[in-house]
């Protein structure tokens, strides 16, 4: 495992910690898209079906359990916690799940490595993760006052994807015969979705302004 992969995973973990900090400590999920969080829970549930059958390392297994557990915990908080759920911007978070789920599933049936249920679901999870941030980005654009934790949460998620790109470049040059086109192309699409957000995040940070996105 190279340094970019490790930093990518740690950034991903940190993004979850930041989100849980906001939800659990401040008891607020204002500005957070439940649609995106539900899509992430679906991404991990379909990708980690092999958790007990395909052992890579203790590190991988522990991380899988953490991402599965936290994603469902976040969804539970936003839907059912009596204080947190009242801070959810339901009227603004209007993106429809099926608009992302159906095309991703269709694509997974068409473009995959093997036609087995596990393989199709794994490929589906890769495609879905690439676009799962979309409802969150739409919600951010509609939010007038983006708080620091929400801005940092999305920044950390984008940074995690950027670090994975660097990880793949290192692996391409250091591991013989290493190719994973489905993961690479989805990863590039996923990182590109953050480009606009990054631009305004850095611009506002440099100008010492509160984060705001043009609508």
């Amino acid at each position: 495992m190279n340094i970019f992969r490790l930093c990518g995973d740690m950034t991903h973990l940190l993004s979850v910690v930041v989100l849980l900090l906001k939800i659990h400590t401040i008891k607020s999920c204002a500005g957070i898209s439940l649609k995106t969080q539900e899509l992430y829970a679906l991404v991990f549930a379909t990708r980690y079906l092999d958790i007990f059958t395909h052992h890579v390392s203790l590190y991988n297994t522990v991380m899988k359990i953490i991402f599965l557990g936290t994603s469902f915990t976040i969804v539970w908080y936003m839907r059912h916690h009596k204080v947190v759920r009242q801070t959810y911007d339901k009227e603004q978070d209007t993106f429809k799940h099926y608009m992302l789920i159906i095309p991703c599933f269709a694509l997974a049936l068409l473009i995959k490595t093997k036609f087995t249920p596990l393989e199709v679901l794994w490929t589906f999870s890769i495609y879905l993760e690439a676009v799962a941030i979309f409802p969150q980005l739409v919600l951010l654009q509609r939010t007038k006052n983006i708080d620091n934790l929400t801005g940092n949460y999305v920044f950390l998620l984008g940074a995690y994807r950027g670090l994975y790109l660097l990880n793949w470049i290192v692996r391409y040059f250091t591991e013989k015969g290493y190719r994973q086109w489905i993961t690479w192309i989805s990863g590039i699409v996923q990182t590109a979705l953050y480009a606009d957000f990054f631009y305004y995040y850095i611009k506002c940070w440099r100008n010492n302004e509160k984060l705001h996105l043009p609508s």
Partner: peptide
């Protein structure tokens, strides 16, 4: 096996 099938990333 091909690396694609190893699924060693998260």
């Amino acid at each position: 096996p091909k690396k694609e099938e190893l699924k060693d990333e998260l």
